[in-house]
Simulated scan of single mutants.
Amino acid sequence: MKIALMDSGIGLLAAAAAVRRIRPDADLVLSSDPDNMPWGPRTPEDVTARALDVARAAAAHRPDALIVACNTASVHALPALRAELEPALPVIGTVPAIKPSVAGGGPVAIWATPATTGSPYQRGLIREFAGSVAVTEVPCPGLADAVEHADEPAIDRAIAAAAALTPRDVRAVVLGCTHYELVAERIRAAVRQPGLPPVALHGSAGAVAAQALRRIGAEPAPSAESAGGLTVLLSGRTAELPETALAYAEGQLLGAVSPAR
């Protein structure tokens, strides 16, 4: 079994690690675009063009499924990716986990990039899934870039700024950018209020990993032999896992395997 994941940068690590945990025998292909990131400020047409290039690089390795582990690419490029690659290659997009986040009754905050915050796409998901639950959209300028570069002081500043915009009574936070899942516990600590239980965090990594297996008719097998290889593609070039990826537990998990042959 071979699962490919694509993103502008290392935000794909969370979903890749989730796949590794439920199918440690699966080969992984990680395709990102460091030469042209970030994608967030680009036009939808430009994002689509970049996403297609990154997806084609991954598809050349003949995976069984492709996870679009990027909220921006899922918003703008998913129809084009599916039109080109399916049905031969199932394509799984990433959607902010708004629906499960409101199950506890709220209030809920959605942390996302400035481009996504307030967008028709995100507002549509809120209307569809939130019902009467109070939802606050929280822009997180600079957080994805800080995570991408493992810039610890910048991560702290960006999280603190977003936490200051998050209502004190929020009981759940949706992580609306895949990069944010790499610093989830730091986000949880920043929004926790004295005397209240920890805030629930809702990312997408586990859901997209499970959906990828469903799309190819496979079952989770977390106790399978840890025999899965790893192929890393940086703007189409075969490379090693970026050094910044190893700053995170997810990157360390993936780096603990031999490269795929």
Rank of each mutant, 00 (worst) to 15 (best):
Leu89Met: 07
Val91Asp: 10
Ile92Phe: 09
Gly93Ile: 03
Gly93Trp: 01
Ser101Leu: 00
Gly104Tyr: 09
Gly105Phe: 00
Gly105Asp: 05
Trp111Glu: 10
Thr113Cys: 09
Thr113Ser: 10
Pro114Thr: 09
Pro114Arg: 07
Thr116Met: 11
Gln122Val: 15
Gln122Asp: 12
Arg123Met: 15
Gly124Glu: 06
Arg127Thr: 14
Phe129Thr: 09
Phe129Pro: 14
Ala130His: 13
Gly131Gln: 04
Gly131Arg: 05
Ser132Pro: 01
Val133Asn: 08
Val135Thr: 02
Glu137Arg: 12
Val138Gly: 04
Pro139Val: 06
Pro141Asn: 04
Gly142Gln: 09
Ala144Leu: 12
Ala144Asn: 07
Ala144Thr: 03
Ala146Met: 12
Ala146Trp: 14
Val147Asp: 11
Val147Pro: 03
Glu148Met: 06
Glu148Ile: 05
Glu148Asn: 07
Ala150Lys: 09
Ala150Asn: 10
Ala150Met: 04
Ala150Leu: 11
Asp151Phe: 00
Asp151Cys: 15
Glu152Asp: 15
Pro153Val: 08
Ile155Gly: 08
Asp156Pro: 00
Arg157Cys: 07
Arg157Ser: 15
Ala158Pro: 08
Ala161Ile: 08
Ala162Ser: 14
Ala162His: 07
Ala163Cys: 07
Leu165Pro: 01
Pro167Arg: 08
Val170Met: 02
Ala172Tyr: 13
Cys177Pro: 04
Thr178Ser: 03
Glu181Asn: 01
Leu182Asn: 08
Ala184Lys: 12
Glu185Gln: 15
Ile187Arg: 07
Arg188Glu: 14
Ala189Ile: 04
Gln193Met: 15
Leu196Thr: 06
